[in-house]
Design a protein around this nucleic acid. Sequence first.
RNA 1: GGAGAAGUACCCAAGUUGGCUGAAGGGGCUCCCCUGCUAAGGGAGUAGACGGUUUACCCCGUGCGAGGGUUCGAAUCCCUCCUUCUCCGCCA
Length: 428
Amino acid sequence: MLDVRTLRDNYEEMKGRLSTRGGDLSVLDRFPEIDEKRRQLIQETETLKARRNEVSQEIAQKKKNKENADAIIKEMREVGDKIKALDESLRSVEEELETLMLSVPNLPHESVPVGKDEDENVEIRQVGERPTFTFEPKPHWEIGTALGILDFERAAKVTGSRFVFYKGLGARLERALISFMMDLHADQHGYQEVLPPYLVNRTSMTGTGQLPKFEEDAFKIREEDYFLSPTAEVPVTNYHREEILDDSDLPIAYCAYSTNFRSEAGSAGRDTRGLIRQHQFNKVELVHFVKPEDSYETLEKLTNHAENVLKKLGLSYRVITLCTGDLGFTAAKTYDLEVWLPSYDTFREISSCSNCEDYQARRASIRFRRDPNSKKKPEFVHTLNGSGLAVGRTMAAILENYQQADGSVLIPEVLRPYMGGIEKIEAK
RNA sequence: GGAGAAGUACCCAAGUUGGCUGAAGGGGCUCCCCUGCUAAGGGAGUAGACGGUUUACCCCGUGCGAGGGUUCGAAUCCCUCCUUCUCCGCCA
């Protein structure tokens, strides 16, 4: 959420910057009017309340002295009615303002390239060697199915499309990847390990920005107002919701493995085969809470941590900066990591690292106190999150990049300790 | 799932004939005095937060788990919800 005061004072400028995202900004047109109306109502109602408080004392006095207070009680009855009416208008205006503010995306950082859509994202760097094949490389779902480690057909029978069974060494490899990533981040990158709930409530989904605008993208539990978490960013960022942290607590860095669920509404027909776009997938997520002045430096670190996973796995990738038009709703700046997938003959997203600045912190009310003895107001932290990495897509990348002419797949060196020393997955 | 109890400020904890309690008392914390230092002792201070207004201070409003209601006025009365605890049942 943007700061209402800042928006009021820099309305035209901020509107201009927001428009580079390309979305519909017409909701903002109503802002000055609603904002003004709200403050006016507050003043009116508070003046009356101050008077009511005063007169209440008077009434108490008179009652105590056994004097007659009927006249002022009658007057106060009218004041009470007015207050009630004004409070009601105020409530509806505040609700309107809230709804409006929740539907306005974050302001892009000034370093973000202005652009219309993903075609205008800017490549920062390419890292690693792409494999060369003496044969036609196969897509990962063919490799995995042939090896008997992925079973899409039975998943479709048991559940539906966009689900998969991992089996045998495939299941083992998925588990190895999760452990490898978590160990790397926890032991070498300084993150604290977290295993969060997979169901989250509506307030949490609103705190990180999935709601209210993108409800159709999430799976909703029927009986409760719970959602299947689409990313560990939701539970882990909301872990500190409505808290005031101590200066000494920061920075905080969590790494969380979780299974994620997405409805993929609107993605019908895209990536229908393979592991790339599943309703359920595993992901290791990195989440930071930092002081505002540190967040951009942290974004670089966070991105490097995610890159490290790819480097150690020996996968070729590139880093791109999302342009304003491709930026996510809550992000001020985002780097995507895209891994090389031979069968696609292109790079595909495998991680997205974002600085949300104080946008989520304001929605979720996550603050910190710079000086415990100062009377100054607490400030909002900056939150960042990034995948480190999407495990299913990593599995796809390994199958494709490490495939051999005979249909087998080599296990990257760093994973072998997690695979009981196995070096290769072969057909039985 | 059934039965019961409770949610007051950093912590503990008073407070149901509604109005000198927006909150007693204790602990903790901060400052001062005393003491060579420490301990002990004495004194003073201590809602935080949000909103309006403001350069800032002051001021005003909200606030006793959350949200409604009754009332001139609610921590105190009524309703709904949430959370925690205890017992029973069930269960990975």
